[in-house]
């Protein structure tokens, strides 16, 4: 019994033999890849709502669908919504396709935020605009102020991530984008935040 041929020594008790066989068989049946035990993407709707709450004026949420590479692709990013059957969260497990879509969509969004340094693409909340305007003076020292960077980070990320993540992000941009133009830097900053697991994944 079993791959190694081990035989349990239980005398002639068939019930116990059955129990052992069951147990061995159940081991073989353990599903590999515990998908239910892995965090999933929050979904496009949740991400859009988060960004709107933090960045958009009150009562004027963003319509971020323009950044999706294709209509109805939002369902491939994690969704509860369906019709005609009990609902369960679908398509939220990271795979190559939804990572590609997230990447494309968030690149577009990040670009729009960066471009807002010169010509506003999105209607932003006053407070975020203030932060953005300061950041858009990059690489001027005022843009690199800790307060400005932290404000930008918490505006986009919220408080989803740890301080360590913020520090890594800040240090990276202060180092690698020290002299880069503002539009590109702001876009890259936004992109780096939104591609972080703390932003995209459910707890």
């Amino acid at each position: 019994m079993g791959p190694g041929g081990a035989r349990p020594h239980l005398g002639a008790n068939p019930a116990m033999m059955r129990a052992l066989l069951l147990a061995a068989f159940s081991l073989l049946l353990q599903p590999t890849g515990a998908m239910a035990q892995s965090s999933q993407f929050k979904g496009w709707a949740a991400v859009s709502r988060e960004l709107s709450i933090r960045l958009a004026p009150p009562g004027q949420p963003f319509d971020l669908d323009e950044f999706l590479p294709s209509r109805s692709m939002d369902e491939l990013l994690g969704t509860w919504t369906t019709f005609g059957t009990e609902h369960r969260f679908r398509n939220g497990t990271p795979n190559a396709l939804n990572m590609t879509i997230w990447h494309a969509a968030l690149s577009g969004f990040a670009k729009a935020v960066g471009q807002s340094c010169t010509s506003p693409r999105l209607m932003f909340h006053e407070r975020f605009l203030t932060t953005l305007h300061k950041l858009c003076t990059w690489p001027a020292p005022a843009a690199k102020d800790e307060g400005v960077l932290l404000a930008f980070w918490t505006s986009v990320m919220g408080y989803n991530a740890s301080e360590h993540e913020y520090a890594a992000w800040r240090d990276f941009f202060l180092r690698e984008y020290a002299t880069e133009p503002a539009t590109e830097t702001v876009a890259a900053m936004t992109f780096a935040i939104t591609m972080n697991p703390s932003f995209l994944l459910n707890r």
Partner: peptide
């Protein structure tokens, strides 16, 4: 807990109890 942890807890709780709307600038 650190300030970050506290803020995280508050934001998460806001999102939970306010229909998906976490902490806003207001």
């Amino acid at each position: 807990a650190s300030l970050w942890q506290k803020r995280w807890w508050i934001d998460r709780t806001a999102r939970l109890l306010r229909g998906g709307e976490g902490l806003a600038p207001e």
